[in-house]
Amino acid sequence: MIKIKKEDFSIDEELKKIKNDKCGASVIFLGTVKSEMNDKKVIKLELDAYVEMAEKKLLEIEADAKNIYSIVECLIIHRYGELCVGDSIVLIIVKSIDRTKSFEAAKYILERIKEEVPIFKKEYAEDGIFWHGGA
């Protein structure tokens, strides 16, 4: 299950959506907006997204993770829009029978999101405003 959206989410509510009692291992990764980056105070982030392509890429990543790590359930949510310090950005929940595979799959999903999913961070910091990755 994947979602790209502006609204916040509840981890408890999302966990219920992929409840599966066969799985003893659930790994949850939550990415939030940091208050400092490179020793500079962050005021807020603005995330732009190519939503249709981001959804397509997340579906590919989810399918690959399921194949490679034999995970049973997977949920990925990525937010976009204006986010303040402490706000949730990304949620990855992976469920499997084997805990090692759940940890590995969550890391694999996060690394591929960072490299492949067309979502872009604009940082409002104390020393200026800039796009991560630049141009």
Partner: peptide
């Protein structure tokens, strides 16, 4: 055609 910068999500 989409014109973007490198992804920086996550």
């Amino acid at each position: 055609l989409a014109i973007m910068i490198p992804p920086s999500g996550g």
